[in-house]
Nucleic acid binder design. Structure first.
Lengths: 241, 241
DNA sequence: ACCTCTCATTCAAACGAATGATTAAATCAA
DNA sequence: TTGATTTAATCATTCGTTTGAATGAGAGGT
């Protein structure tokens, strides 16, 4: 039973398990081992993302999850095992974010591909810069990106590679250039970098802009404008060749 | 004396001080207290930047610097004190990187301002993405950016604020828009983000591009093209208002 | 209904190792 | 000698992990 008094009721700790167990055999939710697992992953995502893997202690994670320290070893083997589980959770939840962009039949015209890309930028901005529920996911993902010894391999295969590949396809169709060319792949990375930086540099940007929190509106306007400008430039460059 | 056998001879530890001391009273270099300070800062920059502040232990830092653990406390008070000294070193060395962009009289035409910005992009790409000597500086700076409890305040005042302000001035002059407008400040952040991402996402990008190391040439081409396209778009947007 | 057994889960407590920091002695040029 | 600097050794603390005992719910026998 948790007795830590100082805690913002942010992600709401594990459900009170004093009441009667409604049925652990039914499946996975409510209070029970699965709830502990989920709470530990949520706490791990938050603390790993917020302070980094090394700086987040197992005791702090367990306290935030309302669980015992030994639960980490029991459910995930070790702290590193929890990290892997967090990475898988990120990949799982992130698979749906770009659904709007990748969904449906392939675009039939450059204009349609461009609209898909614009929708993708808007979705990513909303997810990465603003969405409060996704803040922990984004923070964790970006932490792991800089840590070669971490879960990078797994995240690369499950998140980076497929998303980047799809964006390159759209970019190539919108500009009439080769989706696999070096230029296209770099351009897409640059576009993504523009967006991601607003999460990484968040404290700096908020200070410099005089904001209390990220404003998705102005961000979308600027980034879509840059996207269109870059697409035009790439189209012209492609024709010049 | 360090006895750690496994160490790539990367930044070459402090100079061998077995020989006669040539003269510590002369000033600051050679072997002596200043050399220890410098070696500790260099080791701190590398390890803080590479593994993060929490994950880098004082013993590892001292070993890499060829110094005793107690030297950190003696010269900097504490591990956090060394971190601050590293931040100041970054600010000091970074002040010269953008010299080419900010040097000389203010540009007298939009075209000249644009050329300054292009030169700035090239300098930043060379520094951030490629320069091996500056790898530790860039890694440290970007680590601290994500750590609100770190040296962010100091780095904001000494690095971010002045550089970003100067870039906004140039952007405003190149596009004929207000340098202090929200649009301009966000656009400059987006441009910087494009560049910085190639350092942050370095492991991912190298893998996806099939590179062994960053290629400054293609990066410059893409980023300058994006810069020009964004400047054109901002100019048009400014006139439309 | 009652008891017992079984198994999965949670718990407080403790483990050894590593951490940041500190000490007092040793070192060395002036 | 003097004062600054470096050193090995040790400090208390915190770390990730492990342990063995509680806890509680279902199964099966009586």
């Amino acid at each position: 039973m948790p007795r830590d008094p100082d805690k913002t009721s942010a992600p709401k700790n594990r459900a009170d398990r004093t009441g009667p167990n409604t049925g652990p055999s039914t499946g996975r939710d409510e209070a029970g081992p699965e709830a502990t697992r989920a709470a530990l992953i949520a706490a791990g995502l938050h603390l790993f993302g917020h302070k980094g893997f090394a700086a987040a202690s197992t005791r702090e994670i367990a306290a935030r999850a309302g669980a015992n320290v030994a639960a980490i070893g029991y459910h995930f083997g070790s702290k590193a095992g929890l990290r892997l589980a967090c990475a898988d959770e990120v990949a799982r939840r992130l698979a749906g974010v770009m659904a709007r962009v990748e969904a449906g039949s392939p675009p039939r015209s450059p204009q349609e591909a461009r609209q898909r890309l614009q929708a993708g930028v808007r979705a990513m901005v909303a997810f990465i810069a603003a969405a409060p529920e996704a803040a922990d996911l984004a923070a964790f993902l970006l932490r792991e990106m800089t840590d070669e010894a971490g879960t990078l391999d797994r995240l690369y295969d499950s998140v980076v590679s497929p998303r980047h590949g799809e964006l390159c396809r759209l970019w190539g169709q919108a500009t009439g250039t080769d989706p696999d060319s070096e230029d296209t792949r770099l351009s897409v990375f640059a576009m993504i970098g523009q967006i991601i930086y607003f999460r990484i540099g968040r404290p700096i940007i908020l200070r410099r802009m005089g904001w209390r929190q990220m404003q998705a509106g102005p961000l979308c306007d600027i980034l879509v404008r840059h996207l269109n400008a870059a697409l035009d430039a790439a189209t012209a460059e492609g024709k010049a060749k």
